[in-house]
Nucleic acid binder design. Structure first.
Lengths: 339, 339
DNA sequence: CACTGGCACTCGGCGGCACTGAGTGCCAGA
DNA sequence: TCTGGCACTCAGTGCCGCCGAGTGCCAGTG
């Protein structure tokens, strides 16, 4: 039913529409792409494509625009990921190599992605669940207040104040710190609750109260941070393509502030650098109709830590965007593995 | 030249225009505000106000809208800060009391401000320069890598990895940590470079190399963080008032991503809770024409730590916004003083 | 002298109307 | 199976005239 030429026509329609943002007609199509047939023939093919639901006309006397289904087919079968230009590769390296700490890596990444794709970029912090504990620090602020700092292998730092009912001296803190680290250092964060299950009971009787308070705060902080953090950048790119639809930008801006929504959008991280493309309603969030999301998991080695991606109009340059997202994800993984 | 009634008229014009976003005419004015005079009289007053540059007509056959100068006069002399409703006070308390750590305080604050004012909120992190050192932590990651963690009295945490040329053992790290803290603990951050000026020289000869590396990274991190951090929220509120001017939202979104610009916008922190209002071109940044900024410094006690504020259209509810910003600044200061 | 009512005037916004042109579907012919 | 031709549709555009909100000015009044 869809022979090769029809697919060529669909590909040409998607490419033209993406670059001009105007319905494309049969005549323009044969002029811009050397299809080797006449407009009339193309019209027949277009009728077939419309029949199949791949393209549609906004109104009777207009050209065609791709539908969601059309974009899907394009992404799945008609496009090849466009290799990045050397300049772009260089930009990625230069941008990320100077990063100082994890916060900096994330901030730079989001900026880089937004710049490369000229769209809205979303980067998730390395998931706590999938990280492991590098070190647990316990600082005595005053006699009855400790600062608990958790440092992961990805450089993430979580800190929390522990209020104690009783006073505690420096030596006790040092000892407790050592015993805690012996238990959890280099364990997966998700394993920490198990590792500490009987920790308090095994403590010397005189330090049980303190240990119990510390462990409680630690476990609590792990639960609270479950809602992993994301950073958004390039929101101003929204207006580039939304000038025509001023009512569509508001819900998108709202969505960008709902980090929970964004995390769902990026999707479950699978294997590192594996690309996911969600087109239009596929990402099932009211207010994000008409937008597409290209995301990839990143990680060090074979372990996926979290995801990053970009959000743009359905009429986006999929091959280019996919290449950029994939390259950045790969590079971030490398940076994190090094540190 | 501007008698009381003319000022009343100006006040009425500002109030009406702010709430309706439409040029206000003489007739509507006498109907909605009981000015006790006829439209014709008001027209004369309006002519005088226009003469003085306080109001203008967008086109000949339209009502008047306030100019920048008009808003300025309104803010300076014609408005009283609207007290917050009990519901709003309660919202502030509930919102901020549950905060876990500094990041959380900042995130909650920005969200709260955006919600209260229905505008774009900007909150600056407590300035490093104005904080003091609570503790300096040195963690031995491997033999040749240390993690340096700086914790300030406002709960801010900065961390950085120190790469060493030689191996170092746990005891040496402990000793160095103790000596470092003896020097800088509870000093103002801005004093740290002075405090450490001769630190390396006074170290035992065998630990000089390590001390020098650590101090170098510490000083460097203080310089780099000079560009203090800000957090933005409520960007979706932009579209509420920018529907009519779709071309004005793009530059504003861009400005929101330029944190340096935002920091300038908030202005130099003066005394805590002191309000600043910048109207239109007063904040002198291309692309922010037509917007106003209401900001306040916050701090604990009499020490200003940083600023927060909101950004909105020139036609904003100044009394309400000023009340909200001021109340939030006061409350944030209190929260930080407690922790 | 300040205020008021009346009146002529201006001009943006809106609906109606005709025209244009891009693009289509269909059909007969190669 | 493709092509050229033809009638048809309809969004977009420009033009026109009307409506009405709002103004400025002036003469009249307490």
């Amino acid at each position: 039913m869809l022979d090769d030429r029809k697919l060529d026509v669909l590909r040409a329609i998607v490419q033209d529409f993406v670059s001009t943002n105007e319905p494309v007609g049969s005549k323009a199509l044969v002029e811009r792409h050397h299809l080797g047939v006449s407009p009339a023939t193309v019209r027949n093919d277009m009728a077939a494509l419309e029949e199949g639901g791949y393209i549609a006309q906004p109104h009777t006397s207009a050209g065609r625009i791709p539908t969601e289904k059309g974009y899907r087919l394009f992404v799945d079968r008609l496009s090849t990921i466009k290799p990045l230009s050397p300049a772009e590769r260089r930009a990625i390296e230069q941008f990320l190599d100077g990063a100082l700490d994890l916060d900096d890596v994330v901030r730079r990444t989001v900026r880089l992605l937004a710049q490369l794709t000229r769209q809205v970029a979303v980067v998730q912090y390395p998931s706590l669940d999938r990280s492991s504990v590098r070190h647990l620090e316990l600082v005595r602020l005053t006699g009855s207040r400790l600062l608990l700092v958790l440092i992961t292998d990805t450089g993430r730092v979580e800190q929390r104040v522990v209020e104690l009912a009783t006073e505690v001296d420096e030596d006790a803190v040092t000892a407790l710190r050592a015993r805690l680290n012996a238990r959890v250092a280099s364990a997966l964060v998700i394993e920490v609750p198990n590792q500490l299950a009987d920790f308090v009971d095994q403590e010397p009787i005189e330090s049980r109260a303190v240990a119990s308070a510390v462990v409680a705060v630690l476990l609590e902080s792990l639960v609270e941070r479950r809602d992993d953090r994301v950073v958004v950048g390039g929101a101003s790119n929204l207006t580039r393509f939304a000038l025509d639809f001023p009512d569509t930008v508001h819900p998108v801006l709202e969505a960008l502030e709902e980090h929970v929504v964004l995390i769902k959008l990026l999707g479950e991280a699978t294997r590192p650098t594996e690309l996911t493309v969600r087109i239009g309603d596929e990402n099932a969030y009211e207010g994000l109709r008409g937008t597409s999301v290209v995301s990839a998991a990143y990680g060090s080695g074979s372990r996926a830590l979290a995801s990053l991606g970009v959000l743009g109009p359905m009429r986006m340059d999929y091959p280019g965007t996919m290449a950029a997202v994939s390259a950045v994800a790969r590079y971030v993984g490398r940076i994190l593995a090094e540190s």
